[in-house]
Computed example of a mutant assay.
Amino acid sequence: MRLIKKILGKVLYGIAKMISAIMDFFIQLIVNMVVFVGSFFKGCLALMSMGGCLFFLLFANLGLRILMHPMGLSTILFLLAFLMFGGKLAAYLKYIKYIITEFLFNTANYLMDGINYQYKGFNEFKEAYRKAEEDRIREQQQRYYEQQRKWEERFKQQWYQQHHQGGQGAYGGHSRQGSYGQGFINPNVEFKNKYERSCDIIGVPYDADKAQMKSAYRKKAKEYHPDLSKAPNATEIFQEISAAYEFLSDEHIQRYKNI
């Protein structure tokens, strides 16, 4: 009986490795296809913006024929849908791969060595994945806010040095040369700088409204999503973009306009 369990455990372990390799292949294929389709549409838009009227004169007829053809229209719609939902599909496949393979690995190890391995149910791996994702996001947020805190501290130190080096008056006090004198620190300066830096991160002008910010955020977030981008620091950039958009709330937009 013990020998049969070991053999069955090895078979399950091999199946789990095979499923993991197959799903990794399809996940990477989907990610590469999303990147390729996105680059294709970006290239088309860039060509249109550079070509102007010449582009329409040369390619408008071809484009109309493609759109009028059922197969051409279906292909365009499919590519657009794939671009919109491909990232979500890849993320969902990662989730499915994790819970299935981890369950099979656990069961295989339990069958091969029931003493050192505790059997876990399928639903336990769902909860473990959800918790791991929450911990990963929380860790990224903490890392980002720590970077923000260090940046703000450096900013304050620079203002403090300027204040004390350039703001000393003839009587040892701080001279104030009007509302915006050298020795005066505007309480809104730090907020203004952080607001404008957040706008720079998501790529919008400082007078942009919430709709413009939302559109720019979605574009940037899709470009640097960890499941889609091949950039080595995509996760950090994505987290920075998310934090910047979160800071650009309706309240902060109104406060910036009132400065």
Rank of each mutant, 00 (worst) to 15 (best):
K5A: 13
K6T: 12
L8K: 10
L8V: 10
K10S: 07
A16Q: 02
S20N: 08
A21R: 13
F25A: 09
F25W: 03
F26T: 10
I27S: 15
I27C: 13
I27D: 11
Q28I: 01
I30R: 09
V31I: 15
V31E: 11
M33I: 05
M33S: 07
V37Y: 03
G38C: 02
G38T: 02
G38E: 10
S39K: 06
F40R: 09
F41Y: 15
L45N: 02
L45D: 04
S49I: 03
M50S: 11
L58S: 03
F59Y: 15
F59P: 05
L62H: 12
G63F: 01
G63D: 02
I66P: 09
M68I: 01
H69P: 00
G72F: 00
F78I: 12
L80C: 09
A81N: 05
F82A: 13
M84D: 11
F85Y: 10
G87P: 09
K88Y: 15
Y92L: 10
L93Q: 14
K94E: 11
K94L: 02
K97D: 08
Y98E: 07
I99R: 06
E102M: 01
N106L: 00
N109W: 07
L111D: 11
N116K: 15
Y117C: 01
Q118M: 04
Y119C: 00
K120A: 09
G121Y: 04
G121T: 03
K126Q: 11
A128I: 10
E133W: 06
E134A: 15
E134R: 15
E134P: 03
R136A: 10
R143S: 14
Y145E: 13
R149T: 07
W151D: 07
E152D: 11
R154I: 02
F155E: 05
K156Y: 04
Q157V: 02
W159S: 04
Q162W: 05
H164Q: 11
Q165H: 14
Q165T: 12
G166N: 12
G166K: 14
A170E: 13
Y171M: 12
S175W: 05
S175D: 00
Q177C: 03
G178W: 08
Y180K: 06
Q182I: 15
Q182R: 13
G183K: 04
F184W: 06
N186A: 14
P187N: 05
F191M: 07
N193I: 00
K194V: 04
Y195N: 02
Y195I: 00
E196C: 08
C199T: 11
I201P: 01
I201Y: 07
I201N: 10
G203H: 06
G203T: 07
V204A: 04
P205E: 06
D207I: 00
D207V: 00
D207T: 04
D207N: 14
D209Y: 05
K214F: 04
Y217F: 13
Y217L: 00
R218T: 07
K219E: 10
K220R: 14
K220P: 02
E223W: 06
S229I: 03
A231S: 09
P232W: 15
P232R: 09
A234T: 09
T235S: 13
T235C: 02
F238T: 01
I241R: 13
A243K: 14
F247G: 01
F247N: 02
L248E: 08
H252R: 15
I253F: 06
I253S: 03
R255P: 00
Y256V: 01
Y256A: 06
Y256I: 00
K257G: 14
K257I: 07
N258S: 15
I259L: 13
I259Y: 06
I259F: 04
I259V: 03
